[in-house]
């Protein structure tokens, strides 16, 4: 493994200052993507800035109609949190199925979102629930956050502080996991709010997106059958040895139907 400077700031201000001073710095959160990437020399930072010592990135608070989760919260903590399980059970279940148990014990919410892997689970929830990404500089709406393949709206050196998830009437997440990696070949979250239904899709395209066609159909009639005739545009969908673009489009529809069924029978 290539050498690097290891830095462990205790505040966000200090973290940002260290980031500015370094040549090729990278923030370290749970490390479950970054450290394997460094072992394979896909990433070779000059400075590793460990965010684990920053107290304000931790904690889960339930407030009126929303739940706020600190960026450093590990997937297992989200899955086990009584507050999350009671406010948005689908989010707790999603977190409990990310990767494997060892990954969930270290991987974090903020780390996963900043990385924006096209097959990560959380982005589907952030979009379907209309979450707000709070950073050390500003608040970013879910729609604006995921921009392209491994690209987010975060500026150089900007750190995610917390996620604020509005509480839906009900929500459900279904994924078709890659049997080896447990990443989503396709994952779909359907969330029903007072003002309509939102659908977040991960795994299918270069980055997670809202499926407006599915939303329209479900706003007309919230039932699995309503999705039967919806076309899923798939020109820019991912194709790899696991699934063609056409197959992923079919999976989007099937996972969405199953999620809608789960809304009525959780």
């Amino acid at each position: 493994m290539q050498p690097f400077n290891y830095l462990k700031p205790s505040t966000l201000t200090e973290a940002a200052a260290l980031h500015r001073q370094a040549d090729e710095p990278v923030y370290l959160s749970g490390g479950q993507t970054l450290i394997p990437a460094m072992q394979q020399r896909l990433s070779a930072p000059s400075d590793l800035i460990d965010l684990s010592g920053i107290a304000e990135l931790s904690g889960i608070q339930a407030a009126d109609g929303a739940i706020r989760i600190g960026a450093f919260t590990r997937h297992a903590q989200v899955a086990e949190s009584a507050a999350v399980r009671s406010a948005i059970p689908a989010l707790a279940r999603l977190a409990g199925r990310i990767g494997d148990a060892q990954v969930r014990n270290l991987g974090t919410l903020g780390g996963s979102l900043a990385n924006n892997d096209p097959a990560a689970d959380y982005p589907a929830a952030v979009l379907a629930l209309g979450a707000t990404v709070h950073t050390d500089q500003r608040a970013i709406a879910a729609e604006d956050f995921f921009q392209a393949f491994f690209e987010t709206a975060l500026d150089h050196g900007e750190v995610i502080r917390a996620l604020e998830f509005p509480r839906p009437r009900r929500a459900a997440y279904r994924k078709f996991p890659n049997p080896a990696s447990r990443y989503a070949v396709v994952g779909v979250m359907v969330a029903e709010f007072d003002d309509g239904v939102r659908v977040g899709v991960t795994g299918a395209g270069p980055c997670a997106f809202r499926a407006h066609g599915l939303e329209e159909a479900l706003n007309a009639s919230l039932s699995p059958d309503a999705l039967d005739r919806v076309e899923i545009p798939h020109e820019d969908f991912n194709r790899d040895l696991y699934a063609s673009a056409e197959y992923r489009a079919q999976l989007v529809k099937v996972m969405a139907m199953r999620a809608v069924r789960d809304l009525f029978d959780p």
């Binding site: 290891y6 462990k8 370290l28 490390g31 479950q32 450290i35 394997p36 072992q39 394979q40 590793l48 460990d50 684990s52 297992a76 494997d100 148990a101 060892q102 990954v103 014990n105 270290l106 990696s181």
Partner: peptide, 27 residues
């Protein structure tokens, strides 16, 4: 595997199972 997949290096860190090839000793 040395790529954080196989779990042969699993240990308990503060009572929880983690892959010890997926974190640095300083952490």
């Amino acid at each position: 595997c040395d790529t954080c997949q196989c779990g042969a290096c699993t240990v308990h860190l503060d009572g929880r199972a983690v892959k010890s090839c997926a974190l640095f000793a300083v952490q």
